[in-house]
Protein backbone atom coordinates (compact mmCIF):
# COMPACT_ATOMS: atom_id res chain seq x y z
CA UNK A 1 0.00 0.00 0.00
CA UNK A 2 2.71 2.47 1.04
CA UNK A 3 6.38 2.28 0.07
CA UNK A 4 8.85 4.70 1.62
CA UNK A 5 12.45 4.73 0.52
CA UNK A 6 15.43 6.94 1.21
CA UNK A 7 13.34 9.54 3.00
CA UNK A 8 15.01 12.55 4.59
CA UNK A 9 13.28 15.31 6.52
CA UNK A 10 14.77 18.55 7.75
CA UNK A 11 13.55 21.35 9.96
CA UNK A 12 15.90 24.17 9.09
CA UNK A 13 19.30 22.86 10.17
CA UNK A 14 17.97 19.84 12.05
CA UNK A 15 17.76 16.59 10.17
CA UNK A 16 14.85 14.70 11.72
CA UNK A 17 14.71 11.78 9.29
CA UNK A 18 17.73 10.16 7.71
CA UNK A 19 17.38 7.67 4.88
CA UNK A 20 14.19 6.08 6.17
CA UNK A 21 12.69 3.19 4.27
CA UNK A 22 9.52 1.38 5.21
CA UNK A 23 6.84 -0.78 3.66
CA UNK A 24 3.23 -0.86 4.73
CA UNK A 25 1.39 -3.78 3.12
CA UNK A 26 -2.35 -3.64 2.42
CA UNK A 27 -4.38 -4.33 5.53
CA UNK A 28 -1.40 -4.36 7.86
CA UNK A 29 -1.06 -2.81 11.31
CA UNK A 30 2.42 -1.37 11.58
CA UNK A 31 3.71 -0.35 14.99
CA UNK A 32 6.20 2.52 14.98
CA UNK A 33 8.26 2.58 18.14
CA UNK A 34 11.00 4.81 19.38
CA UNK A 35 11.98 7.15 22.16
CA UNK A 36 10.97 10.77 22.36
CA UNK A 37 12.32 12.83 19.52
CA UNK A 38 13.17 9.80 17.41
CA UNK A 39 11.21 11.18 14.45
CA UNK A 40 7.98 9.17 14.59
CA UNK A 41 5.64 12.14 14.28
CA UNK A 42 7.90 13.60 11.64
CA UNK A 43 7.53 10.44 9.61
CA UNK A 44 3.73 10.46 9.86
CA UNK A 45 3.62 14.14 8.96
CA UNK A 46 5.89 13.49 6.00
CA UNK A 47 3.50 10.86 4.73
CA UNK A 48 0.51 13.12 5.29
CA UNK A 49 2.15 16.14 3.72
CA UNK A 50 1.56 18.17 6.87
CA UNK A 51 5.22 18.51 7.81
CA UNK A 52 6.56 21.97 8.51
CA UNK A 53 10.04 21.16 7.23
CA UNK A 54 11.32 19.88 3.88
CA UNK A 55 11.54 16.28 2.72
CA UNK A 56 13.60 14.36 0.21
CA UNK A 57 13.33 10.82 -1.09
CA UNK A 58 10.31 8.84 -2.14
CA UNK A 59 6.90 8.04 -0.70
CA UNK A 60 4.79 5.93 -3.02
CA UNK A 61 1.16 5.28 -2.35
CA UNK A 62 -0.17 2.39 -4.41
CA UNK A 63 2.62 3.07 -6.86
CA UNK A 64 2.06 6.84 -7.10
CA UNK A 65 4.65 9.27 -5.80
CA UNK A 66 2.95 11.43 -3.14
CA UNK A 67 5.87 13.06 -1.37
CA UNK A 68 5.33 16.78 -1.13
CA UNK A 69 1.60 16.62 -1.81
CA UNK A 70 -0.85 18.48 0.43
CA UNK A 71 -2.85 16.82 3.22
CA UNK A 72 -6.03 17.17 1.17
CA UNK A 73 -4.41 15.29 -1.71
CA UNK A 74 -3.51 12.47 0.65
CA UNK A 75 -7.02 12.42 2.07
CA UNK A 76 -8.45 12.20 -1.42
CA UNK A 77 -6.19 9.17 -1.93
CA UNK A 78 -7.48 7.45 1.19
CA UNK A 79 -4.98 8.41 3.87
CA UNK A 80 -6.13 9.92 7.19
CA UNK A 81 -4.33 10.86 10.35
CA UNK A 82 -5.28 11.38 13.97
CA UNK A 83 -2.48 13.77 14.89
CA UNK A 84 -0.49 13.78 18.06
CA UNK A 85 -2.18 15.52 21.01
CA UNK A 86 -5.68 14.79 19.67
CA UNK A 87 -6.31 18.20 18.10
CA UNK A 88 -10.06 17.84 18.23
CA UNK A 89 -12.24 20.89 17.61
CA UNK A 90 -13.13 21.67 21.18
CA UNK A 91 -15.69 24.38 20.31
CA UNK A 92 -17.58 22.15 17.94
CA UNK A 93 -20.03 19.47 18.94
CA UNK A 94 -19.13 15.81 18.53
CA UNK A 95 -21.38 15.59 15.50
CA UNK A 96 -19.72 18.61 13.96
CA UNK A 97 -16.28 17.17 14.67
CA UNK A 98 -17.19 14.01 12.82
CA UNK A 99 -18.68 16.06 10.02
CA UNK A 100 -15.38 17.90 9.70
CA UNK A 101 -13.63 14.56 9.38
CA UNK A 102 -15.69 13.94 6.26
CA UNK A 103 -14.86 17.40 4.98
CA UNK A 104 -13.81 16.29 1.53
CA UNK A 105 -16.63 13.84 1.00
CA UNK A 106 -19.73 14.72 -0.94
CA UNK A 107 -21.87 11.62 -0.27
CA UNK A 108 -24.36 12.46 2.50
CA UNK A 109 -25.68 8.91 2.71
CA UNK A 110 -22.23 7.40 3.03
CA UNK A 111 -21.31 10.02 5.61
CA UNK A 112 -24.39 9.19 7.64
CA UNK A 113 -23.73 5.46 7.60
CA UNK A 114 -20.07 5.99 8.54
CA UNK A 115 -21.17 8.19 11.41
CA UNK A 116 -23.42 5.38 12.63
CA UNK A 117 -20.56 2.93 12.26
CA UNK A 118 -18.29 5.13 14.36
CA UNK A 119 -20.95 5.54 16.99
CA UNK A 120 -21.22 1.76 17.08
CA UNK A 121 -17.47 1.66 17.64
CA UNK A 122 -17.61 4.39 20.30
CA UNK A 123 -20.97 4.24 22.07
CA UNK A 124 -19.75 6.89 24.52
CA UNK A 125 -19.61 9.40 21.69
CA UNK A 126 -23.12 8.64 20.54
CA UNK A 127 -24.54 9.42 23.97
CA UNK A 128 -22.89 12.83 23.81
CA UNK A 129 -23.25 13.64 20.14
CA UNK A 130 -24.57 17.18 20.71
CA UNK A 131 -22.11 17.99 23.43
CA UNK A 132 -19.21 20.35 22.94
CA UNK A 133 -16.10 18.29 22.27
CA UNK A 134 -14.01 20.33 24.69
CA UNK A 135 -16.08 18.94 27.56
CA UNK A 136 -15.18 15.32 26.80
CA UNK A 137 -12.72 13.41 28.93
CA UNK A 138 -9.23 12.77 27.59
CA UNK A 139 -10.05 9.23 26.52
CA UNK A 140 -13.28 10.28 24.89
CA UNK A 141 -11.44 13.02 23.03
CA UNK A 142 -8.99 10.43 21.75
CA UNK A 143 -11.88 8.30 20.55
CA UNK A 144 -13.30 11.32 18.82
CA UNK A 145 -9.95 12.04 17.15
CA UNK A 146 -9.84 8.48 15.81
CA UNK A 147 -13.47 8.58 14.83
CA UNK A 148 -12.95 11.84 13.00
CA UNK A 149 -10.02 10.37 11.07
CA UNK A 150 -12.17 7.38 10.13
CA UNK A 151 -14.87 9.68 8.79
CA UNK A 152 -12.83 10.26 5.65
CA UNK A 153 -13.20 6.51 5.01
CA UNK A 154 -9.44 5.94 4.69
CA UNK A 155 -7.54 2.99 3.33
CA UNK A 156 -4.61 3.91 5.52
CA UNK A 157 -4.99 5.39 8.98
CA UNK A 158 -2.09 7.06 10.75
CA UNK A 159 -2.48 7.15 14.52
CA UNK A 160 0.05 9.24 16.44
CA UNK A 161 0.14 8.10 20.06
CA UNK A 162 -3.59 7.53 20.52
CA UNK A 163 -3.11 6.33 24.08
CA UNK A 164 -1.08 9.31 25.26
CA UNK A 165 -1.97 10.11 28.83
CA UNK A 166 -4.73 7.54 29.10
CA UNK A 167 -5.42 5.14 31.93
CA UNK A 168 -4.43 1.49 31.27
CA UNK A 169 -8.06 0.48 30.85
CA UNK A 170 -8.51 3.04 28.10
CA UNK A 171 -5.27 2.01 26.43
CA UNK A 172 -6.49 -1.53 26.15
CA UNK A 173 -9.75 -0.29 24.74
CA UNK A 174 -8.02 1.84 22.14
CA UNK A 175 -5.90 -1.10 21.07
CA UNK A 176 -8.99 -3.22 20.69
CA UNK A 177 -10.50 -0.53 18.54
CA UNK A 178 -7.39 -0.47 16.36
CA UNK A 179 -7.91 -4.17 15.78
CA UNK A 180 -11.57 -3.61 14.98
CA UNK A 181 -10.68 -0.91 12.49
CA UNK A 182 -8.10 -3.11 10.91
CA UNK A 183 -10.59 -5.93 10.70
CA UNK A 184 -12.57 -3.68 8.36
CA UNK A 185 -9.64 -3.79 5.91
CA UNK A 186 -7.98 -0.51 6.86
CA UNK A 187 -4.21 -0.44 7.13
CA UNK A 188 -2.97 1.30 10.29
CA UNK A 189 0.30 2.89 11.27
CA UNK A 190 0.35 3.05 15.03
CA UNK A 191 2.84 5.24 16.82
CA UNK A 192 2.99 4.17 20.45
CA UNK A 193 5.05 4.60 23.57
CA UNK A 194 3.28 1.59 24.91
CA UNK A 195 5.32 -0.86 22.85
CA UNK A 196 4.07 -4.11 24.35
CA UNK A 197 0.40 -3.33 23.73
CA UNK A 198 1.16 -1.92 20.30
CA UNK A 199 3.09 -4.94 19.13
CA UNK A 200 0.31 -7.17 20.36
CA UNK A 201 -2.16 -5.71 17.85
CA UNK A 202 0.36 -5.17 15.04
CA UNK A 203 1.49 -7.34 12.19
CA UNK A 204 4.85 -5.65 11.85
CA UNK A 205 6.95 -3.17 13.73
CA UNK A 206 9.64 -0.57 13.16
CA UNK A 207 11.94 0.85 15.79
CA UNK A 208 13.28 4.34 15.19
CA UNK A 209 16.25 6.02 16.77
CA UNK A 210 17.50 9.53 16.10
CA UNK A 211 15.85 9.78 12.71
CA UNK A 212 16.74 6.37 11.36
CA UNK A 213 15.14 2.94 11.37
CA UNK A 214 17.07 0.90 13.90
CA UNK A 215 15.20 -2.33 13.48
CA UNK A 216 12.18 -3.77 11.76
CA UNK A 217 10.41 -7.05 11.48
CA UNK A 218 7.28 -9.00 12.27
CA UNK A 219 5.64 -7.79 15.41
CA UNK A 220 5.84 -11.13 17.15
CA UNK A 221 9.57 -11.33 16.43
CA UNK A 222 10.23 -7.82 17.65
CA UNK A 223 8.45 -8.37 20.92
CA UNK A 224 10.85 -11.23 21.57
CA UNK A 225 14.00 -9.36 20.48
CA UNK A 226 16.21 -8.77 23.51
CA UNK A 227 17.30 -5.27 22.54
CA UNK A 228 13.74 -4.15 21.94
CA UNK A 229 12.67 -5.78 25.14
CA UNK A 230 15.43 -3.99 26.99
CA UNK A 231 14.81 -0.56 25.52
CA UNK A 232 11.02 -0.39 25.13
CA UNK A 233 9.39 -3.18 26.99
CA UNK A 234 10.87 -2.46 30.36
CA UNK A 235 13.25 -5.43 30.55
CA UNK A 236 12.48 -9.12 31.17
Amino acid sequence: MLEISGLFARYGGITALRDVSMTIPDGAVVALLGSNGAGKSTLLNSIMGSIEGVTEGSIRLNGEEVRGKKPTDLMHRGVAMAPEGRQIFSDLSIDENLRMGAYLRRDPDGIRSDRDRIFALFPRLEERHNQRAGTLSGGEQQMLAIGRALMSRPQLLLLDEPSLGLAPLFVTQIMRIVSDINAGGIAVVLVEQNARQALRVSTEGYVMERGTIRMSGRACDLSKDPSVTAAYLGGN
Binding site: M48, S50, P71, T72, M75, M81, P83, Q87, I88, F89, S90, D91, L92, E96, N97, R99, M100, G101, Y103, L104, R148, S152
Partner: peptide, 23 residues
Protein backbone atom coordinates in the same frame (compact mmCIF):
# COMPACT_ATOMS: atom_id res chain seq x y z
CA UNK B 1 -23.71 26.17 7.56
CA UNK B 2 -20.87 23.83 6.72
CA UNK B 3 -18.81 26.89 5.89
CA UNK B 4 -19.48 28.33 9.34
CA UNK B 5 -18.62 25.05 11.07
CA UNK B 6 -15.40 24.78 9.09
CA UNK B 7 -14.49 28.31 10.11
CA UNK B 8 -15.06 27.45 13.75
CA UNK B 9 -13.00 24.28 13.29
CA UNK B 10 -10.15 26.33 11.89
CA UNK B 11 -10.24 28.61 14.88
CA UNK B 12 -10.50 25.72 17.28
CA UNK B 13 -7.57 23.77 15.87
CA UNK B 14 -5.95 25.09 12.71
CA UNK B 15 -3.65 22.08 12.36
CA UNK B 16 -6.39 19.48 12.61
CA UNK B 17 -8.75 21.48 10.42
CA UNK B 18 -6.17 21.75 7.68
CA UNK B 19 -5.36 18.09 8.10
CA UNK B 20 -9.04 17.41 7.53
CA UNK B 21 -8.82 19.30 4.28
CA UNK B 22 -10.19 22.69 5.36
CA UNK B 23 -8.47 25.35 3.31
Amino acid sequence: SFLGISLKALRSSPIAAQAAGVG
